[in-house]
Design a protein around this nucleic acid. Structure first.
Lengths: 203, 203, 203, 203
DNA sequence: GATGAATGAGTTTTCATTCAT
DNA sequence: TATGAATGAAAACTCATTCAT
């Protein structure tokens, strides 16, 4: 499969740490999060954190990669990408909705924050790889005439950004983020993506 | 006009401060930005900042509101909203592209950062007001059958989020953010928004 | 003159800091000295230290250089090095005794501690320069037949090390370090240095 | 014999610990040495250290005493102190050179570091005892007219300090510390110690 | 008004020591 | 007995804010 799998199994203790960090980072942001708050949320002593990661920055990077992979898996793992684009799209979009509903902090951390000051090369590379993979899928759909032309990575960014924008709006207004969100936004998203119908007048 | 105007004229010195803060906040994020860095960038002494604003938080809020208004003006000021929706949309989308090109830090600060921990009520209210205004426009377009049905604020969030996603992607990959971006994304955005053509077979 | 002068005038506030650091470093050693203790001794807040030096390490290096120069000045400044070696030696040794008596912490810090882990290149270079300068003096005395042959830097290290050993012993036993120390050790030191009298039987 | 013997036989495991501690203390200094680093160097788990000593401080004291005794033995054990002072001196000085060459870390740890903050009474007493013993030897030599007058402990400190100074200089400049060092410094050291020849003019 | 040195609470990180396995 | 993960007090350093000049 073309989706990056988790290469190593995270030790359970680190996982607890990452869970705690995820919650707090999503809430306060990386820079505004004191390490002791993460420790407390994880139910460990501050010093223990440094047995698992070299510092706050590495913690954030490990987290970023875990969640990036998690999300990629949640969207694409086991999906047969060779069926009709509209069907695949619908499946993936629904999964995106479910992911947002089930892992709101993951989506928030990944997409609603500014990671520039601390992401390391490995994290950036992973992000780029995921982008490229999804971009490749769109390119094939374009070749098949199912998706409108244009830079596939930009198109990906646009559809996906649309969903992120909706999630952000829900958060701002207190609207619940549940699986309905996929439904509510699906047609619009496909309208963005789908190749325009050939002009009937031209026929 | 329905777009919120700047209620007070910003004193020129505060404006210099906000310009500096904008650049640094966009780059480092609010929490990671030291006040002295803003002062230096503005060419004033640290202490002077506290003559204009009560602290870092108020500075960020003043900035947020200035930029939010600036952007609303840039998108809508002087636009005749009563012409054909597709035309208005095209105009506004082009203006959005120009705004992104000319004020990249403003767009980045407003849309690429997580403001939750520090935005005050006034700033939130302004954001809500802008959303509502744009939502109202979309609602009228829906009533006119030009835009697909659905919660207009969600739809707004989705189109706009799409553009933000594209800008974010450009930043991540180093692709320049210029006025072409509007062109490149316009059709997709309108595809997202536009009411689907009535089934020709049904005619 | 061949002795390195203080190239810059230390700002008075930094001087206060260095005085405090000197006392504490000499007492506890560099690694065992908490920065707050230095701050308290200097009568300033912890944070203020970081306006003058970039950290504990730079503080120790500034201190090391200041004291190294101070000591070189105390020993050699204004001494006419072209008079008879035995007279010059006597003068310098007495000055060494006075320096030890008046600046016990300086001598202790410079000579009784292990500086390897934190001295920077500039400090090492200064130390080497002082060594070389004194070594040069000894070499001239050797050429004049006044001082026994052998690597002049080793010879310097040996006489000077003798004095340091005595100071260390005094500290260990609680014996006061005063100007008598120079007197008490002078003949032995010159016995170490002086060229052995030609064998009278050989004449 | 007047030289303090090791009163207890060190358990072999503790010896391994002390060897590791010696290497690291000499390199980093007591205060800057983390206990885990010692454990790693010794090839044992951190926790195991606390089965043999009560903590870092006791470890350093055990080490100090072991090395102090080791050195005293290395210098004096088996030496017939009743032969001619110059011969005894020569022997001991050569042994000192050999000790420095063979146990550079021991000499470094004992003589190049500041032990004040952690040495306990037992260690201080041992040091004093060694000093006194050597001082007694010197006093006898003075009585025999072989060594110049003056406080014998100060004289000891001065000769020995000379050697330490030379070792320190070698370390600073990267010069190897081998058995030649004894040779190179022997005459100077004896010049320091030896009673000055009676003034021939006075004869 | 403007300045920037001074402050000290708060941040990240280290490390001596303990204790369940 | 040996281990090494866990602890938390203490370390170095940062930075929002104040205030004397």
């Amino acid at each position: 499969m073309f989706i990056p799998m988790a290469p190593t199994v995270t030790p359970p203790r680190l996982d607890v740490l990452l869970d705690a960090a995820l919650a707090v980072f999503d809430e306060l942001g990386y820079a505004a999060t004191p390490v002791p708050v993460i420790a407390q949320r994880a139910g460990v002593a501050v010093g223990s954190i440094y047995r698992y990661v070299s510092g706050k920055e590495q913690l954030a990077n490990e987290l970023y990669r875990r969640e990036k992979r998690r999300m990629a898996m949640a969207l694409f793992d086991g999906v047969d990408l060779d069926t009709a684009p509209a069907d695949v799209f619908r499946t993936v979009w629904d999964r995106l909705g479910r992911f947002a509903a089930e892992h709101p902090a993951a989506l928030g951390f990944l997409e609603l924050h500014h990671h520039d000051p601390y992401l390391d090369d490995e994290s950036r590379a992973l992000a780029a790889q995921v982008d490229a993979t999804v971009g490749g899928l769109l390119a094939r759909w374009q070749a098949a005439g199912a998706v409108r032309p244009g830079d596939p990575e930009l198109l990906t960014a646009q559809v996906f950004g649309g969903f992120v924008g909706v999630v952000r709006q829900c958060r701002a207004t207190g609207r619940p983020i549940d699986h309905h969100l996929a439904e509510l936004t699906r047609d619009a998203a496909w309208g963005l993506l789908a190749a325009p119908a050939p002009n009937p007048a031209a026929g």
